[in-house]
Every structure is written in structure tokens, then in C-alpha cells.
């Protein structure tokens, strides 16, 4: 397969293994460009893009902007209190107005699940989901898979354990859909109150005890604990959470010796993962960040590189 025959990237649930493979392969070629002294190729010259961030972001926003600039397109990022996003305009109106400025693509992060799909249905231009509520964060899932593939040479039949707040995590959902499609075995761990009620839909096993879950794992992925969840009474104290479900050299001891340690960031050090583990030799946390730029360049090229369909 050579081209993505789709307008948008909204989630990994609706993508095929073939499409994911194409993105990951293209991203490998893009990574070489990031290492060059002149980090720019003319492929998307003259294409303009708007990044709409209705939620705070450092990594994802910077990563998208760099990817857009490395491909020679012209991005504009809108977000935070400085924009009229807070004036009560509906999403549809905002984007329709922006569309009239003749942009080619909108990248959006939004707190409501399904907002990216809603937007994609209502506009002609390409929509890339940069995280919608608790639903999906497809580019994060892809960059995690890229990192694993790069280090392990394959995804098939790897044992990947995701630890933490699966219930509220769009990163977990995108990873689960993507990894399962690529033939990996996915297991989740964490407190029962932080598991999605419809866990069986995802086709993953649940093992509450972290020490047991990571047994023989090739990859151990910690998720950021969203501290505001504590107020909702889903777990008693941060200290207890760190003790029972935090990743440390001790709790991850039964994973394979060469297991990768991953975290999508931003890290709450000493809560979901110890600094020792996050900064240790098996950690690929920083490689994940580089992979993010390469994967986003690949997606931009595959979505927008060809002729506009009339």
C-alpha cells in the first residue's frame, strides 16, 4: 500500500494494520530528516495548517509545529485564554471560519470525546486528532508503536503491559487498538476503579497486581496519573497509589531484562514511576519524543502530500 485513502486521522480503532504499517515505515524515512543540519524538506510547501488546542499541551503542540515546519508548511497555533476559543463560539463555527481562510488541515486537541469525529464530519479539510477527551490520541499511539518497533524490530507477539489510569486515558485506548491490530499482546494493570467498565470490548487482559502483570513483559508503559481523579474518590491517596501501582525497579523486576520502559509524559515523578526507572538505561521516554516528530511528519505527508481531490 502506498497511500492513505482517508481525509482524517481520528483514531486507531478505525485504522487497518496496513495503514499503520505505512505510517510507521514512512516515519522511519522522516526521522533521518530530523538528524540533518538543515531540517527541512519542501514537500508541503504552500500548505497551511491550524493547530487548535482547547487543552494545555507542550509536547504534542511543539511536536506538531516542528513536524509542520520541517515539511515546509505554514502552521498557526491557537489556544489558551488569548484566543476567542473562550468566547463561547461553537467548534463548528470556529473551524468553518478558519476554513474560509483556505487552510488545508486542522490539528485539534479538545476535552470532549468524539469532538474530532464531529469536526471531521462538518468540514471539508483534513482533521488530525491530537487528543479528544478520554477517547483517542492516535499520534501518541503511533509514536509509541514506532519506538517499540525501532527498539524491538517487531510488534507481533510482544507482551506490552500498560499500568495506571486506563479508564480516563486516551493514550491507553489508542495504544491498545493499535498494538492489538499489529499483533501484540496487551495487558493492563492498575486499581479496579481506574479500569474502563467495558474493558472486554478492547480485548485485553486485566491483572490488578503490577508485579504479576509485568511478568515476562517486553514493554512496560506507565500512564500519567491525573491527580484531579483523587478528588473524585477513585483512589485514596497519592502515596498509597505510588506504593501499590507505581512503577519502580522493584515492581518491574519480573519484566524481561531488556524490557522497554515507556511513559507518554508529562511525568509525575515518584507517583506513577520512580525517577530511577524513568531515567534508567531501559527507559525510552526521550526517544518517544523524537519519534513523535517523525510520525507526525509522516502523517502530514501521507494526508496532504498528494493532489487535492476535486
Amino acid at each position: 500500500m502506498q497511500t492513505l485513502r482517508r481525509k482524517d486521522i481520528l483514531g486507531l480503532e478505525e485504522m487497518s494494520a496496513e495503514e499503520i504499517t505505512l505510517i510507521l515505515e514512512t516515519a522511519r524515512s522522516m526521522r533521518e530528516i530530523i538528524q540533518r543540519p538543515i531540517k527541512k524538506v519542501p514537500a508541503l510547501r504552500g500548505r497551511s495548517m491550524i493547530n487548535l488546542f482547547y487543552e494545555p499541551s507542550t509536547r504534542t503542540k511543539a511536536s506538531f509545529e516542528l513536524a509542520q515546519k520541517y515539511m515546509s508548511s505554514d502552521p498557526i497555533s491557537v489556544g489558551g485564554s488569548s484566543s476567542s476559543l473562550v468566547k463561547g463560539e461553537t467548534l463548528k463555527d470556529t473551524v468553518r471560519n478558519l476554513e474560509m481562510m483556505n487552510i488545508d488541515c486542522v490539528v485539534m486537541r479538545h476535552p470532549v470525546s468524539g469532538s474530532a469525529h464531529y469536526l471531521a464530519r462538518n468540514v471539508e479539510i483534513s482533521v488530525i486528532n491530537a487528543g479528544d477527551g478520554m477517547h483517542e490520541h492516535p499520534t501518541q499511539g503511533l509514536l509509541d508503536m514506532f519506538t517499540i518497533l525501532d527498539k524491538k524490530g517487531r510488534l507481533e507477539e510482544l507482551k506490552v503491559v500498560i499500568v495506571g489510569d486506563i479508564r480516563h486515558s486516551r493514550v491507553a485506548r489508542s495504544n491498545i487498538w493499535g498494538l492489538k491490530k499489529m499483533g501484540a499482546q496487551v495487558l493492563v494493570s492498575g486499581p479496579p476503579t481506574l479500569m474502563p467498565p467495558d474493558l472486554e470490548v478492547f480485548g485485553v487482559e486485566y491483572c490488578p497486581r503490577v508485579e504479576e502483570a509485568v511478568e515476562g513483559a517486553d514493554v512496560v508503559m506507565a500512564l500519567r496519573l491525573q491527580k484531579e481523579r483523587q478528588e473524585g474518590g477513585l483512589f485514596p491517596t497519592l502515596r498509597e497509589y505510588a506504593e501499590l501501582y507505581g512503577l519502580s525497579s522493584e515492581s518491574a523486576a519480573r519484566a524481561k531484562d531488556d524490557a522497554l520502559i515507556m511513559h507518554p509524559g508529562p511525568i509525575n515523578r515518584g507517583i506513577e514511576i520512580t525517577s530511577e526507572l524513568a531515567d534508567g538505561p531501559r527507559s525510552v521516554v526521550l526517544e518517544q519524543v523524537t519519534a513523535g516528530v517523525a510520525v507526525r511528519m509522516a502523517i502530514l505527508y501521507l494526508l496532504l502530500g498528494g493532489a487535492k481531490e476535486e
Partner: peptide, 10 residues
């Protein structure tokens, strides 16, 4: 690049 319907592989 912006004229071709069949997008070349990178």
C-alpha cells in the same frame, strides 16, 4: 507532489 493523484512512497 501536489499534482499527482498517486502519491509516491517515501
Amino acid at each position: 507532489l501536489t499534482r499527482r493523484q498517486d502519491q509516491p512512497e517515501v
